[in-house]
Design a protein around this nucleic acid. Sequence first.
RNA 1: GGCCCUGUAGCUCAACUGGAUAGAGUACCUGACUACGGAUCAGGCGGUUGAAGGUUCGAAUCCUUUCAGGGUCACCA
Length: 594
Amino acid sequence: MYVGRNFFKENFMSLDNLHKKITQSMCHFYDQKIPHKYFQIHKTKSDFKGDYTLIVFPFLSFSKKDLEATAIEMGNVLQEIEEISSFNIVKGFLNFNLSDLFFFSLLEKSFKTKNFGFSSLQNQSQTTLVEFSSPNTNKPLHLGHIRNNLLGFSISNIFKACGHNVKMVQVINDRGIHICKSMLAWLKYGDGKTPKTENQKGDFFVGQYYILFEKKLKEEQEKMKNKNDIPNILREAQEMLIKWEEKDPEVLKLWNKMNSWVYEGMDLTYKKLGISFDKNYYESNTYLDGKRIVQNHLKKNTFFTKKDGSVWIDLNEFNLDEKLLLRSDGTAVYMTQDIGTAFCRFEDFSFDKMIYVTGNEQNYHFQTLFKILEKLGCEWSVNCSHLSYGMVDLPSGKMKSREGTIVDADDLISKMRQDSRNLIKKSNKFDDFSEEEVQDLSRIIGDGALKYFILKVDAKKNMLFNPKESIDFNGNTGPFIQYTHARIISILRKRNNFEPSFNSFDSIHQLEKDLIKIIIDFPNCIQLCKNSLNPSFLANYVYHLAKTYNKFYQKVPILDGSKNEKFRLTISKKVSLVIMRGMNLLGIDVPNRM
RNA sequence: GGCCCUGUAGCUCAACUGGAUAGAGUACCUGACUACGGAUCAGGCGGUUGAAGGUUCGAAUCCUUUCAGGGUCACCA
């Protein structure tokens, strides 16, 4: 459960002023400047009475009194502040309540703040590059890529919301032995077939030939007596790679053709995911830049050359190893390409920050990359960071391409949409929906289920994706949140264009307070996600908001015709907006009916 | 073997980065509608936070040690 207890830290609204007031009055009382970090204020746990809690322990050194006496003393000081109505003490915890008036003003501010929680883009905005997806061109995107794309897209949105000028980029691994394998297999066994003649998505079409290559390779290996010999088919692929590097026109033509098939296919997948990039980088270009950079630095003693001519960098001073940058035959490795890509990007955007989104198997790689960039004199290397995520498993077990238990992104998305469609068709609530509306809703719910379920988990952890559980309308799921949104919209529909009201005529209900407290925590939650490169806080935040709203909905009548109706509608409206905007930051749509 | 990450209810995940009696969902059991949308809500059951020490007023969180799982240490990407 996400409850932003610590949001006094950087909340921009009047809570921030309240924090200042508390700090000032306490400093005044003890007649000395007390460091900011001593004021630990967080939301009061639900088992205790109070809205917020000030922790007393750190102040003992100032009061020179025992815990109880200090707490009472401080409580009395707090009560002098007009926004604070009362307090109680439990051990070293000073719980205090905010006045109803203050709650009203908090709601009003959040309601009237334009783009509440978001900072706008300005001239001095930082430019932040987010690299994600970055597929190979020999096979379609799979479940792992989905987590990558969702994280990349979401963290991009979050940085945008924080006022950064975000550029979404990827590097496409379009060169190397892997694509040559597909090419060779297609030449040998393709019979001139194309995605068009086979009516297949291009990435799947090409992926087939990659699999076919591996199959033929295995067959040949099994027939061979001497296991140390290189199989013919593999040798041919290697020869093809050499020809490619020599820019053999025939090979290049084929390479272009097959890559373009893959791109066409992947574009469809990206479109389904609602993702697009500001700029694509291609390894086939950037590896040359990388080579050039490394060669230029050879004279400067940044690198050293081994007897066989291979080029290395020594990173022992950083507790890392020696790392190869150019093979003995002068060709580039993965790292070389990444150096080149980074330089190109800095030239293109002179970014303030760059974030790489990749699986955690590359943790070492990026640690090394950043240090190499530093040694190459890039001051901006300290502004590069790595959002690494763990593997996604399925209930059926681990996902392994070698064992064929891989799940293609397209198949998974289709299945989720189909499942949600079945649920919609089972209900009679949508009898008036056109086919188009049904399709649209299936997409929203199916995608929302998938995206939410993946994003709610802390990125760095391995996780289990359970399709069935993800599309459940109860529990911590996307559809549950979407339902809550639709439900609020349904109420608002009954009081079109109501005049917002920020005052309750009776004393404010506990659940109304709870909702307002969560609402005003929204900006802080976005900041937290940004600072920790972790969208899961936001997912859990929105769930907590939806959950609390449903409780409110059940317990407190909204459209009861009373004087308080408008106040409750105002809260409801604000909740629906925060849900929508929070979900949108995760790349998830919310329906008005479901 | 070196380095990195993870270990929390039967299962899937939280715990706002050191605060109170570790919370949700799910599963299981029990309640609540002539509906502002029951695709909801309320209650019950469920824990030695892998284990052992240490620091602290206070530890799931920080430090040691240890066990288990994963990753990585390629002239692969």
